[in-house]
Design a protein around this nucleic acid. Sequence first.
DNA 1: TTCTAATATGTCATATTAGACATAATCGTG
DNA 2: CACGATTATGTCTAATATGACATATTAGAA
Lengths: 104, 104
Amino acid sequence: MDAIKRQKIEAAGGKVVTIAEFLDLSPEDMEMIEIRLSLSKSLKKFRQQEQLSQQKLADSINSSQSRVAKMEASDPSVSIDLLIKSLLALGATREDIATAISGN
Amino acid sequence: MDAIKRQKIEAAGGKVVTIAEFLDLSPEDMEMIEIRLSLSKSLKKFRQQEQLSQQKLADSINSSQSRVAKMEASDPSVSIDLLIKSLLALGATREDIATAISGN
DNA sequence: TTCTAATATGTCATATTAGACATAATCGTG
DNA sequence: CACGATTATGTCTAATATGACATATTAGAA
């Protein structure tokens, strides 16, 4: 949100709050969330490139369809470990993972 | 180990086995271990650059000295999540983390 | 629309990871 | 050497992540 929009809202009596402020997240927490988000997007991309259903992928990594869905949804219950493990299983390289994490 | 050395050992009746073979690790397992290793080395480097003891770092991230020691030792009981969280707390950027993971 | 495959969501028991603590080992420095 | 500080290791129990399952929702084709 730019400064002008913020000013307008505040001038009108509204309080502007970022998501981080609202949820009381530290910058590091935000980064963690962003990293998980990038990885999960990458996971979905790799899976689709391989033309696999969530179920097929789940089978190949001894997991379940629901967990794969949660991975791709960046559910807070999924660890970065699991995301990376799954990406590797899909053939992603460390470089691919690094790229996802860097956000570029 | 190069092919020549391997050949010599095998010619002498020895069986050559990689660590991965010995521990029956999949290539993905190996990658996971290497990633953890890179991150833990990076963590130690960042902590030392900041001139912090493991205890001080532990305090700043609500953890314990022993857990920090385990992080830096790449103990299997520590998750990549925790390593990344700790790196971020030390001021590492996503770029720094990506670099560690890529192994370059 | 209806049927079917795919994906999403909620919950649970089990497994894994967490911080904490005790204590051992190692490092520096006098 | 001795001592103090730092780091390593082992083991608890609490917290969190896991696969599994049921079920809901969505997507796409006939």
